[in-house]
Simulated assay, not measured.
Amino acid sequence: MTVPDRTSTPSGTQRSGTQPSETHTALEEIYAKVKRVQRDLRPSDRIVQDLGIDSLATLEILLALEERFGVALVDNPRTAGTATVGDLVALLDELRADRAS
């Protein structure tokens, strides 16, 4: 997969010229496996509308992210508020930081 140089900022957006965050890269890998399509995910991509992720694919992706990072997403009410890739990356980063502390 070709990934443009970018990295997540605290707001979940990305800047050119730097590497993507570990969380963003993991999400791209899992998306590619579940959807069988390789694509660069932008923070502004809407999960349902732009990426075409249905409820079953959403569950597969969330479970894979839970397993990879050891956080709870499926049963977390905050997950329902994630509409974009940037939102999901920011939530994952926050949950991972909470877990580490």
Rank of each mutant, 00 (worst) to 15 (best):
I61N: 04
L95W: 14
L91C: 07
S11A: 14
G86P: 05
G17Q: 11
L73N: 05
T58A: 13
G86L: 07
D40N: 12
S55K: 08
L41M: 05
R6S: 14
D75W: 04
A57C: 04
S16E: 14
E67T: 08
L73G: 04
L91Q: 11
G12C: 09
S44I: 13
T82W: 07
A90V: 02
T84S: 14
A100N: 10
E29A: 09
H24S: 11
D87S: 11
V34I: 13
L51G: 07
T58R: 10
R46S: 03
K33C: 00
E29Y: 00
D93A: 03
S8G: 04
R46I: 10
V37G: 00
D87P: 03
S8L: 15
P43D: 11
G70Q: 07
D5H: 15
P77T: 05
H24N: 07
R46P: 00
A97M: 05
V85S: 08
E28W: 05
L41K: 04
S11F: 10
L88V: 03
N76V: 09
T84Y: 10
I53R: 13
K35P: 03
R99L: 08
S55Y: 07
A64P: 02
E66L: 09
A64Q: 06
E29W: 01
A97E: 14
D75E: 14
S21N: 09
T84P: 03
Q14V: 14
T18Q: 13
P43V: 01
A72P: 02
A32C: 06
E94N: 06
T25W: 06
T7N: 12
L95D: 08
L95F: 11
A90R: 15
A97Q: 14
T9I: 12
I47T: 02
A32N: 09
V89A: 09
L92E: 10
A100S: 09
R78E: 15
R99K: 14
T13E: 15
D54I: 03
L95Y: 08
F69S: 00
A80P: 01
S16N: 10
